[in-house]
Design a protein around this nucleic acid. Structure first.
Length: 927
RNA sequence: GCCCGGGUGGUGGAAUCGGUAGACACGCAGGACUUAAAAUCCUGUCUGCAGAAAUGCGGGUGCGGGUUCAAGUCCCGCCCCGGGUACCA
C-alpha cells in the first residue's frame, strides 16, 4: 500500500475536529503552558509559505508538551484592523468588514489544511465589536488613570483628585506633559472645564500636539510606509510635516520599568537590545544658556564634561524659542530653512549625514563658564521631540557637531585628551574616555569624574541639573482612519469626556466613503449620527479618529483565556490559571513596536490589578523571514522565442517574471507557462541540451507583483501538510531568514514514504511484528528519542528532522519492523507530521489517538559506548584515528598513541614537544 | 546614517562547551530494475595536485590581521546581504 497523504490527512483532520481533541479547558490538576503565535493580519494575498514557519514551530512545541503532560493553551486569531483593507475599500468602495471577512475565511481554510492544533473555539478578531468593546474599555482605563511616581504605578484619577483637592501640586510626583504648580485653594476654585483641562496633563490617555505626515492634496495623514521620497505613494503628491492635536498614551511613564523588565524575560539579546535602544535611557544634564537679554535656552547633553568645548548652540527648527531668537536680518532665511525642514521626514533628517544643513539665527548666548559669546543655529539634525530640542554643539567630540562646524566654519576645540596623537580638526574624538583638558577646573580629570564634577558645579550655580533622559516618546494613539477601533470619547465644549461604559462597544458607523471629509476631518466625520446623547438629551460630538493597528494586538493574548466573556475582558480566575504567555513565536520585525506596546499595556493592567503578572511574554522566539526566489524566462527581443538560462547571453534578451509555481528545480513547465500566458502559445523554446528549459533566479522580497509568492495550498495538495511541516522545519534554524525554495521538498517527501514503507511488507500489507528488537535497533531508537527530545527543548527543529531521517535510514537497513521500536517512533514523529503518525499509531493501537500517547523516554545504558575513536593530530592537522577504550586515563591514552606505529611515521624521528590529550575527544601532538 | 541579525560545497544547511569542517537532504554524474517511463534501490560528489586505484600531499567556513597545542566557533579592523528606524502589521 502506497503512502496516500490526501486520504490520510483528510481522515485524521476530520477525526480530530469531530472528537474536539484540540479543545482545551482549565484543569487545576495539570500544569499549564501557554504557547502563542503572533496572530496574522489577514491580507488579500492569502497566507503564504512564510506565515506557517512560526506556526508550525509553535504547533510542534505545543504537541510535544501535551505528550509530556502539559495542559497547553494554543490559540489563533486575526489582527483584522489595518491599513490595507481600508486602502482596498477606498479603491473599490467595498466595506472593509466584508473584504476582511473574506480574507479571514481564506486564511482559516489554509490554516485548516496544515494540521494545526489550535483550539478554534477561542478565536479572537480585533475588528469584532465583541472584542474591541474591551479594547475601548481598556482605553477608558488609561483615560481614567494617572501615573504616581511615588508608588511607581498607575492609579485611578480619583487618587489624583484627592491629592489636588487637599494639597494642590505640592508633594505630587506624577508623569505629566508639563510640570504645573498650583495650590489646593486655586484648584478648588477652578471651573470644571479648567479642572478637566488640567487633568489631561496627567491622564495616561491624553491629547497633545504631535508631528504627522500631512498630505494636503489627499487631505489626510499618511503612514511613513505610504510616503516615498517626500511624496505620497498614492498619487505622488507632496507631503509635509505638520503638528496635529492627537490622542497619545503616556508610555514614557513606564520607560524605566520597561527597561528593567527586560532583565526577567527570556528573549534573545538582540531583541532586548533593540528595546533598550528604543527606550534609549541616557544620563546627562540639563544646562541653561542665556542670551545677553537673559532669554534662556535649555539644552540636554550626555557629555556635560565637554562644555568648555561648546562653540555654538543648535536648536530644532521647530523649537518654540526660534522666533524670539531670530534677528530681523535672518527672519527670511530662517523661514526658508524651516519650510525646507517641513518637507523632510524625521528619518531623512537623521539619516542624511552627508548633506549638512542649518541656518544661523543671528543670536548669541553667553557661555556660562567661559563667558564667550557663541552663536545660535537651527538645524534639522536636532529634533524637537528629543531632550529639550536644543543642544550645545561640541565639534571636537561629536561627529554631527563636527560636520556642522566644518560646513559653517565654526571653531573646533579639543577638551578631552584621547591619550594618543589626534588631529581634532580632521576627526572628532567621540569616545567617552580620556582626560579633560582646556577646561579650567575640570582639566586633568578623567571623563567620568569630570562629568560628576561639572554637574555638581552646574547645580551649585543654579543653571541646570542632572537629568535622566529617554529617547522613548509617548505613543501617538489617534489615526485619521476609518478601519480601526473608534475612540470612546465625546466632546463637551471642546473638553474630552469618556463615554459611559454601558455604551460600549462604540461601533464603527456606516460612511458613504472611506476618505477624509472635504474639511480634512477623518472618515468618521462623514457619519450622520456621530454624537453622544447625554441624560438631559444634549448631543455632543464623538471623537472622529480611530485607534492605531497596535491597539488590538496589545492585549489579545489575554482575551484568548476567556474569549466569550461579555461582562469583562477576561475573568480573574482564568487569568490566574493561564497567567501569561510562556512561549511566544513571531517575527523580529515586531521587536520594538508590538512587543513594547504589549508590555506597556500589560504593566498598566498589572498596576490596576487586572493581571497578576508583570510581563506578558516569558520567552520569545523570533522566526526568520522567508524570502521569495523569483524566476525569469528570457525572451529574444523581437522574436517569438524564449531561450534557456545558459544560452541567453548569446542573444539580446528581455527577462520576464514567470510564476514560480510553474518551475521545479529550475526547470520550467512549458505547457503550464503557455496556459498561464496564452499570448506566448506559439512561441518557440530553445532548451538546454537535455531538452529542459531552465529559468534564471533572483532572491528578493516575496511579493505578488514578482510572481514569487508561494502559497502553501499547492504544496499541501501535491505533497501533503506533513511534508510541508517537515520541510519548513528542515530548511534551517528557525530564527534564520531564508529564501523559499521548494527544490529540497522531495527529500522530506521521500523520507515520509520511506517511513511509511517501514510498516509494510513486500505485498503491501501492514506488517508490524511483536518480536524482541536487537540491541542495534534499540540503540537507533533511543538515540533518536534523546536527540529529538533535547533538540526540541532547544527549538532546533531542523536537526530533529535529520535525526528522523537517520533513524529511518538505519531501521530500513536493519529491516526492523518491530512494534517496540516503531510505536515510540510514531509518537516522536507525531508533533512534526501528525497525520501520518496518527495513521500508523492507530493501525498499531486499534483506535487510540496518538495525541494521547505519552512521550517516550530513552535509556542511557543502551547508548553507552565502550570505545572512543580519537582523531590524532600533529600540529593541529588530523592524520589518523585511533579507537581506544573509554576507560583509559589521559596518561594511558598518551602511551597508547606513542606506541602506535603510524605515530612514528608522522614524528619522523623527532621528539614530540608536547602531547595534548582531551579525554574522550582528541589527541594533538606538537612537534 | 544609527541600531539589530546573517555570510560554511552547485543549493538548504550540520558541527549543542574552542577539539576529525561539510552530518542530513536537494541537485548532479554513473549504475541496477523496466520494452519504456514513473517509483524504488546502489555508488560517487568541497577543491587543487599526484595516482589505474587504494591512497597521499596541499588549500579551504565573506576579506585582512590576532590569540591558542587547536578557530566556522574567541578578539580587532573591513566588505556584502537582510530587518527595524516611532501612522505597514
Amino acid at each position: 500500500m502506497e503512502y496516500n497523504h490526501k486520504e490520510i490527512e483528510r481522515t485524521w483532520s476530520k477525526y480530530w475536529s469531530e472528537n474536539q481533541l484540540y479543545k482545551v479547558v482549565e484543569d487545576p490538576n495539570l500544569p499549564k503552558l501557554y504557547v502563542l503565535d503572533m496572530f496574522p493580519y489577514p491580507s488579500g494575498a492569502g497566507l503564504h509559505v512564510g506565515h506557517p514557519l512560526g506556526y508550525i514551530a509553535s504547533d510542534i512545541y505545543s504537541r510535544f508538551m501535551r505528550h509530556r503532560g502539559f495542559n497547553v493553551l494554543h490559540p489563533m486569531g486575526y489582527d483584522s484592523f489595518g491599513l490595507p483593507a481600508e486602502q482596498y475599500a477606498i479603491e473599490t468602495g467595498q466595506h472593509p468588514a466584508v473584504t476582511t471577512e473574506n480574507n479571514i475565511k481564506r486564511y482559516r481554510s489554509q490554516l485548516d489544511l496544515l494540521g494545526m492544533s489550535y483550539d478554534w473555539s477561542r478565536e479572537v478578531r480585533t475588528s469584532d465589536p465583541k472584542y474591541y468593546k474591551w479594547t475601548q474599555w481598556i482605553f477608558l482605563q488609561f483615560f481614567n488613570s494617572w501615573y504616581n511616581k511615588k508608588t511607581n504605578k498607575a492609579e485611578p484619577v480619583k487618587t489624583l483628585l484627592q491629592h489636588l483637592e487637599e494639597f494642590g501640586t505640592k508633594g505630587l510626583d506624577a508623569a505629566c506633559t508639563q510640570q504645573l504648580s498650583f495650590t489646593a485653594e486655586e484648584w478648588n476654585t477652578w471651573p470644571e472645564e479648567k479642572k478637566q483641562q488640567t487633568l489631561l496633563n496627567y491622564r495616561l490617555a491624553y491629547r497633545s500636539e504631535s508631528v504627522v505626515n500631512w498630505c494636503p492634496a489627499l487631505g489626510t495623514v499618511l503612514a511613513n510606509d505610504e510616503v516615498k521620497d517626500g511624496l505620497s505613494e498614492r498619487g505622488g503628491y507632496p507631503v509635509v510635516q505638520k503638528k496635529m492635536m492627537q490622542w497619545s498614551l503616556r508610555i514614557t511613564a513606564y520607560a524605566q520599568r520597561l527597561l528593567e523588565g527586560l532583565e526577567q524575560i527570556d528573549w534573545s539579546d538582540s531583541i532586548k537590545e533593540a528595546q533598550r535602544n528604543w527606550i534609549g535611557r541616557s544620563e546627562g544634564a540639563i544646562v541653561n544658556f542665556y542670551t545677553p537679554d537673559q532669554v534662556p535656552i535649555s539644552i540636554f547633553t550626555t557629555r556635560p564634561d565637554t562644555i568648555f568645548g561648546a562653540t555654538f548652540i543648535v536648536m530644532a527648527p521647530e523649537h518654540d524659542a526660534v522666533d524670539q531668537l531670530t534677528t530681523d536680518e535672518f527672519k527670511r532665511a530662517v523661514e526658508q530653512y524651516r519650510d525646507y525642514v517641513k518637507s523632510r521626514s524625521e528619518r531623512d533628517r537623521l539619516a542624511d549625514v552627508k548633506n549638512v544643513t542649518g541656518q544661523f539665527t543671528g543670536s548669541y548666548v553667553i557661555h556660562p563658564f567661559s563667558g564667550e559669546k557663541i552663536p545660535v543655529y537651527i538645524s534639522e539634525y536636532v529634533l524637537a521631540g528629543y531632550g529639550t530640542g536644543a543642544i550645545m554643539a561640541v565639534p571636537g567630540h561629536d561627529s554631527r557637531d563636527h560636520r556642522f562646524a566644518k560646513k559653517f566654519g565654526l571653531p573646533i576645540k579639543m577638551v578631552v585628551d584621547p591619550g594618543k596623537p589626534w588631529d581634532v580638526d580632521a576627526e572628532t574624538y567621540e569616545e567617552k574616555s580620556g582626560t579633560s583638558i582646556n577646561s579650567e577646573f575640570l582639566s586633568g580629570l578623567p571623563v567620568e569624574d569630570a562629568i560628576s564634577a561639572i554637574i555638581t558645579e552646574i547645580e551649585r550655580r543654579g543653571i541646570g541639573h542632572r537629568k535622566v533622559n529617554f529617547r522613548l516618546r509617548d505613543a501617538v494613539f489617534g489615526r485619521q482612519r476609518y478601519w480601526g477601533e473608534p475612540i470612546p470619547i465625546y466632546y463637551k465644549n471642546g473638553i474630552p469626556y469618556p463615554l459611559p461604559e454601558e455604551l460600549l462597544p462604540l461601533e464603527l458607523p456606516q460612511v458613504d466613503a472611506y476618505l477624509p471629509t472635504e474639511d480634512g476631518d477623518p472618515p468618521l466625520a462623514r457619519a450622520k449620527e456621530w454624537y453622544y446623547t447625554d441624560d438631559e438629551g444634549n448631543k455632543w460630538p464623538l471623537e472622529t479618529t480611530t485607534m492605531p493597528g497596535w491597539a488590538g494586538s496589545s492585549w489579545y493574548f489575554l482575551r484568548y483565556m476567556d474569549p466569550a466573556n461579555e461582562k469583562e475582558p477576561f475573568s480573574a480566575a482564568k487569568e490566574k490559571y493561564w497567567k501569561s504567555v510562556d512561549l511566544y513565536f513571531g517575527g523580529s520585525e515586531h521587536s520594538t513596536g508590538h512587543l513594547l506596546y504589549a508590555r506597556f499595556w500589560h504593566k498598566f493592567l498589572f498596576d490596576l490589578g487586572f493581571v497578576t503578572s508583570d510581563e506578558p511574554f516569558a520567552k520569545l522566539i523570533n522566526q526568520g523571514m522567508i524570502q521569495g526566489t523569483s524566476a525569469f524566462v528570457y525572451r529574444v527581443k523581437g522574436q517569438k522565442k524564449f531561450v534557456t538560462f545558459s544560452k541567453k547571453d548569446a542573444y539580446d534578451t528581455q527577462s520576464l517574471y514567470v510564476d514560480v509555481n510553474l518551475v521545479e528545480n529550475d526547470v520550467l513547465d512549458i505547457d503550464g507557462f503557455k496556459k498561464w500566458r496564452p499570448e506566448f502559445m506559439d512561441f518557440e523554446f530553445e532548451t538546454e541540451d537535455d531538452g529542459s528549459y531552465r529559468v534564471g533566479r533572483e532572491i528578493e522580497k516575496m511579493s505578488k507583483s514578482k510572481y514569487n509568492v508561494v502559497n502553501p495550498d499547492h504544496i499541501v495538495e501535491k505533497y501533503g501538510a506533513d511534508t510541508l511541516r517537515l520541510y519548513e522545519m528542515f530548511l534551517g534554524p528557525i530564527e534564520l531568514s531564508k529564501p523559499w525554495n521548494t527544490d529540497g521538498i522531495t527529500g522530506v517527501y521521500n523520507f515520509l514514504k520511506k517511513y511509511w514503507r517501514l510498516h509494510f511488507d513486500e505485498a503491501g500489507n501492514f506488517c508490524v511484528k511483536d518480536e524482541k528488537p536487537t540491541d542495534a535497533e534499540l540503540k537507533t531508537l533511543h538515540k533518536t528519542i534523546k536527540k529529538v527530545t533535547n533538540d526540541l527543548q532547544n527549538f532546533s527543529y531542523n536537526t530533529c528532522v535529520s535525526a528522523f531521517m537517520i533513524c529511518v535510514n538505519e531501521l530500513t537497513s536493519q529491516k526492523c519492523q518491530k512494534r517496540e521500536v516503531l510505536q515510540p517512533l510514531s509518537v516522536l514523529l507525531a508533533p512534526f507530521a501528525p497525520h501520518i503518525a496518527e495513521e500508523i499509531y492507530q493501525r498499531m493501537n486499534s483506535g487510540q489517538s496518538v495525541l494521547l500517547a505519552r512521550w517516550p523516554s530513552w535509556d542511557e545504558k543502551l547508548l553507552e559506548e565502550d570505545h572512543v575513536i580519537y582523531p590524532v593530530s600533529f600540529n593541529g592537522k588530523t592524520r589518523f584515528t585511533l579507537s581506544l577504550s573509554k576507560s583509559l586515563t589521559s596518561e594511558e591514552v598518551e602511551k597508547a598513541v606513542l606506541a602506535e606505529p603510524k605515530t612514528a611515521k608522522y614524528l619522523n624521528g623527532k621528539n614530540p614537544r608536547k602531547i595534548i590529550v582531551v579525554q574522550g575527544r582528541i589527541i594533538n601532538i606538537v612537534i
